[in-house]
Design a protein around this nucleic acid. Structure first.
Length: 315
DNA sequence: TAGACGTGGAA
DNA sequence: TTTCCAAGTCT
C-alpha cells in the first residue's frame, strides 16, 4: 500500500484490510471484487490485483508464509526490489540493502552522487549495502527511511540537526537540495471525453465493470466515451450506452499520473432498466460499496451532487 | 529503458 | 495555480 503513497493516505485502508482480512489466508479466501472495493480510492489499482494474486500464491505454494529468500520474494506479484528487500530485512533480519525514495535521497546527498536517477540506482544500492549492518538491518533500513522522511527532506532539509551532517559530502561541498538529480519531466497531455450517468425511475445508477488490465483495471465505471485528445466541441452523445434524454450536467477534470482528463458529464433520469445491457444498477445510497475510482466518483457527483457523503478524515 | 500506472497534500 | 512528490512495479 505504501508504494508511492503517503502514510496518511494508507492508514485507513491498512486498518480496513487488516480488520477484514487479518491473515494472508483470509486474503486468499476473499474475492477479487471485494479486494477491489476495499482498495477503491487508494489508486494504482494494479497493486490491489497483485496483492490478491500474491496472497493466493503464498497460500497455495508457501503454506501461508512468505519465503525468507530475496529471489523468491521478488518473484511474487507486486513485490519488486524495494519490497523484497524490506521484507527480507525487516521481517527476516537479513542484511540486505533496502532502497526506497528516501534512501535514494539520503545516499545521493551523503556521497554527492551527481548521476541522475534512475541510472544512479546500482551505485546507491552498493553504497547502502556497505552501510547496512549485519544485525538489526531492518531497524537500520527504517532509520534511514525515517531520516529521509523527517530530516533529509526533498526541500529545506534540516541539516543542522542531521546525525550525518559531519559526513555529508553534499553539505560539505555544495547544496543537499541539488540531490538527487533527476531526468526532466515531460508535459502531461490532455485527453477529453464524456461520461454518462443514467438514473432509473427508482433512483438507481447504471454502472459497469472495466477490463481487468490497464488503467483503472478491475474497477467500476459509469459509461464513458473514449478518452482522446480531440479538442472540438463534440458532445460524444453518440457514445451513450443507450438512448435516453441525456442532458448536460457539468464537467470534471481529473489529473492522472501521465495525462489530464476532462470529462463532460451527461445525465438522464427515469431511464428504463433494460436487460440487454452488460452493466448493473445500484441505488445511490449503495454507491459507496462499489469499486469506484475517484475519477468516477467525481463524474457521478457532478450529476448527483449528494451521491457521496462528505467524509471527514480521521483525526 | 522509458512509459504506464492514481490520488491527495504541501509548498 | 502549478509543480513536486509519496515505504515502486511491471512491461
Amino acid at each position: 500500500m505504501l508504494q508511492q503513497t503517503t502514510v496518511e493516505a494508507v492508514k485507513p485502508y491498512f486498518l480496513g484490510f487488516i480488520h477484514k482480512w487479518p491473515t494472508i489466508l483470509d486474503l486468499a479466501a476473499a474475492s477479487q471484487d471485494d479486494v477491489m472495493r476495499a482498495w477503491a480510492g487508494l489508486g494504482y489499482y494494479s497493486r490491489a490485483r497483485n496483492l490478491k494474486k500474491c496472497a493466493d500464491i503464498v497460500a497455495e505454494n508457501f503454506d501461508g508464509h512468505f519465503p525468507a529468500d530475496l529471489a523468491q520474494l521478488k518473484s511474487l506479484p507486486g513485490i519488486g526490489d524495494y519490497t523484497a528487500a524490506a521484507i527480507a530485512s525487516i521481517a527476516f533480519d537479513m542484511p540486505v540493502a533496502v532502497v526506497d525514495g528516501n534512501v535514494e535521497r539520503v545516499i545521493t546527498r551523503l556521497y554527492a552522487l551527481s548521476t541522475p536517477l534512475p541510472a544512479a540506482k546500482p551505485d546507491i544500492r552498493r553504497l547502502m549495502q556497505a552501510l547496512t549492518p549485519d544485525k538489526r538491518s531492518g531497524d537500520f533500513a527504517q532509520a534511514m527511511m525515517d531520516l529521509g522522511a523527517t530530516i533529509c527532506t526533498p526541500r529545506r532539509p534540516a541539516c543542522v540537526i542531521c546525525p550525518l551532517n559531519d559526513n555529508c559530502e553534499a553539505l560539505k561541498t555544495t547544496d543537499p537540495e541539488f540531490f538527487p538529480v533527476k531526468a526532466p519531466k515531460k508535459r502531461k497531455p490532455v485527453r477529453m471525453g464524456a461520461a454518462f450517468v443514467a438514473i432509473s425511475g427508482n433512483g438507481e445508477v447504471y454502472l459497469r465493470g472495466r477490463a481487468q488490465t490497464g488503467l483503472l483495471g478491475g474497477m467500476t465505471e459509469v459509461p464513458t466515451t473514449e478518452w482522446t485528445s480531440r479538442a472540438d466541441g463534440e458532445t460524444g452523445i453518440d457514445a451513450a450506452p443507450f438512448e435516453a434524454e441525456w442532458t448536460s450536467s457539468g464537467a470534471i477534470t481529473h489529473i492522472f499520473t501521465h495525462f489530464e482528463l476532462r470529462l463532460t458529464i451527461y445525465k438522464a433520469q427515469n431511464v428504463q432498466k433494460l436487460a440487454s445491457n452488460d452493466g448493473w444498477w445500484i441505488s445511490v445510497e449503495n454507491l459507496d460499496n462499489e469499486a469506484l475510482p475517484t475519477v468516477m466518483k467525481k463524474a457521478i457527483a457532478a450529476a448527483i451532487p449528494d451521491a457521496f457523503e462528505k467524509r471527514r478524515k480521521e483525526a
